[in-house]
Design a protein around this nucleic acid. Structure first.
Lengths: 114, 114
DNA sequence: CACGCGTATTGACGTCTGTCAACATAGACG
DNA sequence: CGTCTATGTTGACAGACGTCAATACGCGTG
C-alpha cells in the first residue's frame, strides 16, 4: 500500500529513535520541503493561528508584498501536500490547517520533550 | 541582536499559536530547508539514532548510493545550519546531532500534544 | 619525508523552484 | 445575461539545488 506524505509521517519513529528508510525519507521530505519556504511558513502560521483555524485567501494576501498568483501558488503547494484543507464558500475560499499533520511531523522531528 | 536559525527557532511560538513574523520565517525556513531533503533526513536520523548520538562519516556513506563528495556536501549543509556538530578525531570526522535544535524545531511546528 | 587513506572543496551540469504578467474561471448581483 | 470580484492557471525567466568527476587537504604510518 502506498501512503501519502501526511500518512507516512504518522507512522515513522522519531529521527533520534531509528534510522528512516529510504522510502520513508522520500515520502517525508516533500512535506518538509513544502514548509521550508518563508512565505509558506507564514501562511501556515497565519492560517493555523487564525480564528477557527481557518482563513480566507483575502485575509492572507495582505501581509505579503507578493502578487496574488504567487500566494495562490504557495497555498496550492501546501494544499496538495496535505497540510491545508480547502473549502469554497460562495466567492471566497477558506483554507484550514491540518494540525494533526503538523503534530505528526513535529513528533517525527523531535522526540517529545520529557 | 541577530540570532542564528537554531537560536531563532527556540524563541518562536508554535505555528498554531501566533503568526510568524517575516523575520522569524526568514530565519526558520533555512532550517527546514536543510532537513527537507531525503538524503539529509536519513543522515540526520542515522546520526541521531546512532550509538552515542554521533557517527563517523565512514559509517554514513555506506547506506547511500551516492558519491562521497555528495555525502560530504549534505553533511556540510546540516553542519552549517547548526543541526550537526562536527568533531575531528585523528583521521576520522564525527558528526553529532544537536537534539535541542530538533526539539525546538518540533515545538515550533506542532504544539506539543496534550 | 613520502605515501595512503579519510574527508572536503571546486567546477560543471541538468533540474527544480519562486516569482510575475497575462489570462482564465466561477459565482454573485444587478 | 453581462459585469464585477475573488481566486486559480499558464508560460516564462532567473536563481537555487543535488549530483558527480577531479582535485585538494590533513593526518597517521612506515
Amino acid at each position: 500500500m502506498v501512503l501519502s506524505p501526511v500518512e507516512t509521517v504518522a507512522c515513522c519513529s522519531p529521527l533520534s529513535r531509528q534510522p528512516l528508510t529510504k522510502q520513508q525519507a522520500d515520502q517525508v521530505a516533500p512535506l518538509l520541503k513544502a514548509l521550508a519556504d518563508p512565505v509558506r511558513l507564514r501562511l501556515m502560521s497565519l492560517i493555523a493561528s487564525h480564528e477557527g483555524g481557518e482563513a480566507c485567501v483575502c485575509d492572507l494576501a495582505d501581509p505579503f508584498e507578493l502578487s496574488q498568483p504567487t500566494i495562490s501558488h504557495h497555498l496550492k503547494v501546501l494544499h496538495e501536500i496535505g497540510l491545508l484543507d480547502r473549502e469554497k464558500r460562495g466567492v471566497w475560499v477558506y483554507y484550514r490547517a491540518r494540525t494533526e499533520a503538523l503534530t505528526n511531523l513535529a513528533a517525527l522531528i523531535g522526540t517529545p520533550v520529557g
